[in-house]
Design a protein around this nucleic acid. Structure first.
Lengths: 186, 186
DNA sequence: GCGCATCCTGACCGATCGTGCAGTAGTGTG
DNA sequence: CACACTACTGCACGATCGGTCAGGATGCGC
């Protein structure tokens, strides 16, 4: 947990987000960070350990967000959604990895933890007496929000700057979860 | 286009959907189809050609859907959305590949074609005078719908059978695109 | 019978994969 | 100066990657 391995983790995260765990090679990560492949395995015991280190901050942030959550009333829910969207922006690359490549990586601890957290978010937003249709609706809203962010530079007809997109996503998500009680856009 | 290569394409599609293009190996695809690796390369000139063959039916189906589209009035839009969800179900694995692994595969023709089609769907649903916020909303709705289907067996708290999920997704999508004018669920 | 495709295979190639290991600079600390 | 520790590297390993190729088996027209 010490060390000047931070740029290495950053390079690894970029590679993992771009091409997934299997597709990313230690050689490319090392080149990207300006080190040799051996140096990567000096700082991290294995490729999987590096993967864990790259995703760990994101799952800790999401875990913390879920621990301090207070959904009492619409205001509490809106506050949570705002912070959730902030989380998505802050850990964009990690979210990309989990969302896009996670399903192939079941069994890797950090991915299993991420899946468990996602399921908790899902259950959290699902109201007590809600129908299955509502659950599907929230699933679409959450997945869609995450995915629009992750794929913004891929399918966005015109690229919106982050600070324009962020309040829009927050507003849209709130609208889908609390219909008819929209947050103001800005 | 001849041949008894169909089970090969099916096996390839399973592998590509599960672990992506880079992660899938010809050996595993061959094993999955009960053939040797050499046989795979007898039927298809390269791994990329196999990838193309596996995704081709899906992009042709989506292309056909977009050619025959008629969005006049809410009824036309709802009909399109129903057929779009049907497309997602019919080509689930191919959609998984495009959605989850496509961003790493820019430059591969079939992926570029798929991206172009997705952009057309996006523009199609975007009303003439719509705001950017509406565009984001539709992006969330489309991405969320596709992703809920793709990840249904990963994050779904309880697994819904397809024939329950399908009308629900259609209904939710219509609700998000045509707010306040919902399709009946069943 | 023979010739000719079609389908499929094992052996092999060069490259790259993740990983282990011995060794080497640089930097204190005694 | 010696010693230890950290950061880093080159080299070699077995395995696996995508891909080539010569050849075996089967079946059909002649």
């Amino acid at each position: 947990m010490p060390s000047g391995a931070a740029p290495l983790v950053a390079a690894a995260l970029r590679q993992f987000a771009a091409v997934g765990f299997e597709g990313a090679s230690l050689q490319r990560i090392a080149d990207d960070a300006g080190l040799s492949k051996s140096s990567v395995l000096y700082h991290f015991a294995s490729k999987e350990a590096l993967f864990d280190a790259a995703l760990r901050p994101a799952i800790e942030a999401l875990g913390g967000l879920l621990e301090s959550v207070d959904l009492d009333g619409d205001a509490g829910t809106q506050d949570f959604l705002t912070r959730f969207v902030d989380f998505l922006f802050d850990h964009r690359l990690a979210v990309t990895v989990i969302v896009n490549h996670g399903s192939a990586l079941r069994g890797i601890p950090v991915i299993d933890e991420a899946d468990a957290l996602v399921r908790r978010v899902e259950q959290l937003l699902r109201p007590a007496g809600g129908s299955e249709r509502d659950a599907v609706r929230f699933g679409v809203a959450l997945a869609g929000t995450a995915f629009v962010l992750v794929a913004a530079d891929r399918w966005g007809t015109e690229r919106l700057p982050d600070e324009t997109l962020r309040p829009m996503l927050t507003s849209v998500l709130a609208d889908l979860v609390l219909p008819g009680r929209e947050l103001p856009v800005a």
